[in-house]
Design a protein around this nucleic acid. Structure first.
Lengths: 257, 257
DNA sequence: ATTATCCATTTGTCCGACAACCCAATGTTG
DNA sequence: CAACATTGGGTTGTCGGACAAATGGATAAT
């Protein structure tokens, strides 16, 4: 039946559990609930919203996943700031599911990492430099390629933190996460990769210590270019999409805990 | 009671609803469930996992929020690719909650937008150019500053799409979203802002048509610098954190629907 | 063949219940 | 009196069952 041509669109009512989540999210974004603050108990929310506890719980799960609320060891709920690495993990997964290519990854990282290292070179403190040098020292004595790849990831994350720019920090993280597994492969396949990697890190730290922005950028460019060369030397195809396996091992652990 | 010194750490069991979510997510990441595919009914999942329906539903809410599964108009569940703008919205919110400053935003955008426009200038097709020109035409006749600000956001999103680099596209989006409200303010406060904005867009499209990467980058730099000048002329402080109000109006609508 | 009607499924919501767990207040012991 | 052990109330995680509303598909009527 189509009746007379319809005059009205259907009125949509969001399910109650969504409304619960939206209401709480609004309070958080409005600043009426601040990070660290306790959210009431489930019973409280049941009373306030006038819905069943199951409904409240479903709403809470939405917020829990978005990182706006978390549970402490006592499992009680409190408001929380969404964590960067959680968001970055989600983005990495999305990128993989969308089958982005290594070329896209490389191109983006070239801009993001150079921009980041420029800011870091400008702002690095002696403490920052010490931390970076510690990372390099660890890498020099790292037992295997897996450890080196992880330390490399740490290094770039440190640079991002030192940039004192959280927008850049968040923007570079997803691509950074996807590099780690490839670096391990490269280290296993290309003999010089480890040495060149370390050299670039050293030069970058040197430049940061001297606040030499130009040199820092230059060496970061070389560093990212090296990755590409190594990637191709290891027999990988730049226009292949990032394989799904790269996120599987990233572990679901962090995602819901 | 502390007894003898404990030999074992406590065994952690994740709640059943988390395990449900993780199990389904694993299947998706492993490729056994592909986007578009129907997930079983709740009753199916109850049977397979051997848990209560409430538990299954809580697990589903986690995945729903992460964008890995969605409900079609019939409310049945199917596997889905996480959407960029959903992720970008979340990131924008996180940035605001972390109280990033406009300076961070500006600095990051300067790198991200220039990198994006370089790639776009290299790869823009005639159809892409036509779309950009259409956007400019609309902006020339836009009724108010709100409309212009939104068209500006569209323009930059188009450039990102034209870059054919989804990593860059995703990386620039969160910062881009936070610019829109400020641009409206600038347009209202600074007389020349609208004209300069349009001029920059025109020059950028011109450069893209000619695949003139250098010029495209140059005008994007000017464009972003103009934003900063306008922002300061409008009496705003670059080192203030982005206000919470900037995300509230972004609407929760998209977040859970 | 197209339209209208009916029925089985499925989701959203509710109710009630209970074990495991956490925290704090209480009592106990050196 | 202080440190410890115990107890009890409150909270979360999970379960079972129930029902209205909405949906999709099958069936009947035009």
């Amino acid at each position: 039946m189509h009746g007379a041509d319809d005059r009205f669109e259907r009125i949509q009512v969001a399910p109650a559990y969504q409304q619960v989540a939206e209401a709480i999210e609004r309070e958080i974004l409005a600043g009426h609930l601040t990070p660290g603050e306790r959210l009431g108990t489930e019973a409280d929310l049941v009373r306030q919203f006038g819905v069943n506890r199951s409904t409240v719980r479903e709403g809470i799960r939405l917020l829990e996943q978005s990182g706006l609320i978390r549970r402490d060891q006592s499992r009680r709920l409190f408001v929380s700031l969404p964590r960067y690495n959680r968001l970055a993990t989600r983005m990495s997964r999305a990128l993989v599911l969308h089958q982005v290519t290594f070329r896209e990854l490389w191109e983006a990282s070239m801009s993001l990492e150079t921009a980041t290292v420029e800011a870091a070179a400008e702002r690095a403190s002696p403490e920052d430099i010490a931390e970076l040098e510690d990372n390099i020292a660890k890498m020099e004595t790292a037992p295997d390629s897996q450890a080196i790849a992880e330390l490399d990831n740490d290094f770039h994350a440190m640079i991002a933190r030192i940039s004192r720019n959280r927008v850049l920090q968040l923007a570079r993280e997803p691509a950074g996460l996807l590099f780690t597994p490839t670096l391990k492969i490269i280290l296993d396949e290309v003999a010089v990769a480890g040495r060149r990697n370390l050299e670039a890190h050293r030069k970058i730290v040197d430049a940061c210590r001297r606040h030499d922005i130009e040199t820092a950028r230059l060496w970061m460019q070389r560093h990212i270019t090296d990755w590409r060369r190594g990637f191709e030397k290891a027999g990988q195809q730049l226009d292949d999409p990032v394989e799904r396996t790269y996120v599987q091992h990233m572990g679901l652990g962090g995602a819901y805990r």
